[in-house]
Design a protein around this nucleic acid. Sequence first.
RNA 1: CCGCCCUUAGCUCAGCCUGGUAGAGCAGUCGACUGUAGAUCGACUUGUCCCCCGUUCAAUUCGGGGAGGGCGGACCA
Length: 328
Amino acid sequence: MDAYELITRNAAEVVTEEELRTLADDPDGKRAYVGYEPSGVLHLGHMLTATKLIELQEAGFEVTVLLADVHAYLNDKGSFEEIRETADRMQEQFIAYGLDESQTEFVLGSEFQLDEEYTLDLHAAELETTLSRAKRAMAEIQRGDHAKVSQMVYPLMQALDIEYLDVDLAVGGLDQRKVHMLARETLPELDYEVRPALHTPIIADLDSGVGKMASSSGVTISMEDSEDEIEAKINDAYCPPTADPDPDGDGNERENPVLQLYQYHVFPRVETVVVERPEQYGGNLEYDDYETLEADLESGDLHPMDAKSALAAELNALIEPGRQQLNA
RNA sequence: CCGCCCUUAGCUCAGCCUGGUAGAGCAGUCGACUGUAGAUCGACUUGUCCCCCGUUCAAUUCGGGGAGGGCGGACCA
């Protein structure tokens, strides 16, 4: 697998392909970052971008994880004190999940976002941005129906972070794309350089396959879950025997979240998946890549129930180090 | 600063005018059917009715006060 392929593997979107190819030509020492609002316990959403960071490290990138305490504060996630406490725990869990400690720099947003120069740049960015544009950028991120002024500042700070952390690539889930597009427009206004962005897919809601697996509502899987809980959640997941389910009764597009978890969480981290299966149904199966597993589910050679139990085992193995760290 | 509206189940809301401790849809739980889930049937659960004071035999309901949220107006020398 060449560098470009590794870097863009499983990406939902890359902006722009040309800019990323340039980075891939000489990835050593290039810098990438993801920002997270500290939430204490890592869930699959965090782990999806973390997996991408691990792949970037394999490609030679230096990785910065922004523990965005100021952003969390602006998004009404609690007091600074509370937020910083959870940031510490989160950092430990990222390392437990597999981010290489020697190649990863953890930065607290408040370490630089309150500096005078940053603040003046922020005001400059505010001057360049209409309220409706900022609101649009925040639509996927904000909590609550009614946007606060703090939430209008939030995406502008993300734009500045790209400059102030001196990164070559901004990484995030697809829900960050409007913020990154705003950043690409805003940075040049302040005479800063535009950086490319890479977006990971968003895993569908486990129960329905519709929309995104939200941590706030519905079922999510985190390092806090016990093995039994994960088994139960995966077993309850929506899983028709196809990768491309029909829309639901309301015409909403549906995905197969079980396959998505294999594709985006398991196979990037695991060489071979063994599906244990009773002799009655044909005995064990082994998969070296996602495509074969998907094809077997599609053809009926792999029953969803067997796919689920193997998935639960794989997820449990991936989460185990973090779980131990959490219980330490 | 002024005015209006909202606050009831996890969510969206009805009920209040004409007081008797509450209902729908969705969600959820459990069964049946599928070797998973979903779909489809069948059953079931859910509440400090925002807080305080008052009237009353009795207040979610009426009156007063307060808190939180939303919307608008005014001011623009």
